[in-house]
């Protein structure tokens, strides 16, 4: 059973983090403006990405260890509680790290980005993907049905919906898709067979590295590292593009109009995913 969705989602979450002005691109722009050189914008991006990656690594590593050693259901309950708790805390206490300082070097930026990502629970956002993917891929092919059986017992009211999903070939809806990306989900469901075909073709080398059955389980160091890299690439790419467009073309006035409160959206999404994770 092959599943590339987790990788795509990890990348998209990276992009979502990358577009948030508080996660780095704005700092890069301001450094460019302060030094009056666009190269300063570029120079700031790698340390910001590294700091972000480090913060993500902490969560992914803990999740990976837990996935490798603990049964899935209690883990889901813990993660659900964690997400809801953190989300509610941030809803009522929307704080920000009290960092001070514009004269930052490489190490400062790494640390700053680490602090910002951690304080916003950036890594927590990935938990549903890691957990959902493991729920799909964790059991070896021969035990897949058993896994499903086991799960259906726990499903309760969600049983019917889940069953319908199973009726669709090769498509197992994941909590992230249900909880947050309902709009794009349909779109993403569509190309699934294509990708499945791809797995047998030019993506074979990847399949070789990570056997298809365990493609998306995040219980080994290599796969956890890959998750961090994929996510960080999404972050770096989007924050870099946005930073350069704002610096070169749009200008800062865009901030007044377009700086949507992603943190609040994020907080609400955390709570919703926390709730959904219990039911998948």
């Amino acid at each position: 059973m092959t599943n590339y969705w987790p990788w795509l989602l990890l990348f998209l979450m990276g992009a979502y983090h990358g577009i948030n002005p508080g996660m780095g691109w704005l700092f890069a722009v301001s450094l460019g403006l302060q030094e009056k050189r666009w190269q300063a914008v570029l120079k700031a991006l790698p340390p910001i990405a590294i700091g972000h990656a480090l913060s993500i690594t902490v969560v992914v590593a803990v999740a990976g260890l837990a996935l490798a050693n603990l049964p899935l259901f209690p883990l889901r309950v813990v993660v659900a509680a964690l997400l809801c708790g953190f989300g509610i805390y941030r809803l009522f206490r929307s704080r920000h790290p009290s960092w001070v300082g514009m004269r930052v070097g490489f190490r400062d930026l790494v640390l700053w980005s680490f602090v910002m990502a951690s304080a916003h629970g950036a890594g927590l956002m990935l938990l549903p993907i890691l957990l959902g993917a493991s729920h799909n891929g964790h059991p070896a092919p021969s035990t897949t049905n058993m896994g499903h059986q086991h799960q259906m017992h726990n499903m309760g009211p969600m049983h019917d919906m889940s069953h319908m999903d199973h009726a669709m070939p090769m498509n197992h809806v994941m909590p992230m898709q249900q909880g947050m990306q309902a709009g794009s989900m349909a779109e993403m469901n569509h190309p699934d067979p294509m990708q499945h075909m791809g797995a047998g073709g030019h993506m074979e080398h990847l399949s070789h590295l990570l056997t298809p059955s365990q493609m998306a389980t995040f219980n080994s160091p290599a796969r956890c590292l890959a998750a961090v890299v994929v996510h960080t690439l999404g972050h770096l790419l989007v924050s870099g593009i946005v930073a350069l467009i704002v610096y070169k073309k749009l200008g800062l006035a865009i901030l007044r109009q377009a700086w949507f409160n992603l943190d609040l959206l994020w907080t609400i999404a955390l709570i919703i995913t926390g709730i959904f994770i219990l039911f998948v």
Binding site: P21, G22, H96, V100, N261, D263
Partner: peptide, 10 residues
Amino acid sequence: ALCPYAPHPH
């Protein structure tokens, strides 16, 4: 509040 290092524009 729009400063890049501790943004809280909302």
